[in-house]
Design a binder for these strands. Structure first.
Lengths: 111, 111
DNA sequence: TTTATATATAAACAATAGTTTATATAACGA
DNA sequence: TCGTTATATAAACTATTGTTTATATATAAA
């Protein structure tokens, strides 16, 4: 178990695949909203479920993917499980993508 | 035809979906390699096909997706069609993701 | 014109990924 | 230990996406 991220590859091969790996984490609206929410501080699953209006199993599923992508850490406190962003840079990068998207949309010629 | 990116939505809804839209463009290894290659200058389809070692229809397919994501522009010159990155920031952001990925991998506790 | 080259498109298929529903596990208070 | 709450997991289903194969279109040279 646990996705193999490193093998015997040249940097040219390693880097693209690890970029793709993180980009995938941002490429789903529910995961992105989880990331943005966690950027404001650690949260329990139920807090995310309520805030985002998604089902509990769906939240757990996406949190597991974010863990697989090394983006979140998990900590239990009694019956609650807190998820926390490992590195806030992922939210910054998401913001950069949003800025670029806004720029591309504003300057696009074709509809 | 042409994906609807803007509707009557609040910024909270527009921004996530446009981020997801661009993140998807980076979330495939072949598209990412096309972006990285175009970051070094405009290229014809055949040049990309040769450089990346992918089939011509596959290259055309991914280039069409990048065009849909507003990331590339197209220009014909004789029988050749040149693709060019609209904004180099997409490559910068990809690089940022790579830097973060390297950091996450270096600092990860679980395998 | 015909032929060759460059690219796009369409159809079929394969593979991934997201979602729901149902159920299991873990913690804790009564 | 029983019931309740919080979360995870598994299975089934659906939807989306990537790839190949075959064919169409466009340009230009012979």
């Amino acid at each position: 178990m646990g996705q193999q991220l490193t093998t015997t590859k040249t940097p040219d091969e390693i880097i693209p695949s690890s970029i793709v790996f993180l980009a995938r984490a941002l490429a789903d609206e529910n995961r992105l909203r989880i990331i943005m929410s966690l950027a404001k501080g650690e949260k329990t699953v139920s807090a995310l479920v309520e805030e985002l209006g998604i089902s509990q199993p769906l939240a757990s599923h996406h949190l597991k993917e974010l863990k697989r992508a090394l983006l979140v850490t998990v900590e239990r406190s009694g019956p609650f499980i807190y998820y926390e962003l490992v590195d806030p840079r992922i939210a910054t990068i998401a913001g950069d993508l949003g800025g670029l998207a806004a720029h591309l949309l504003a300057n696009r010629t074709t509809f």
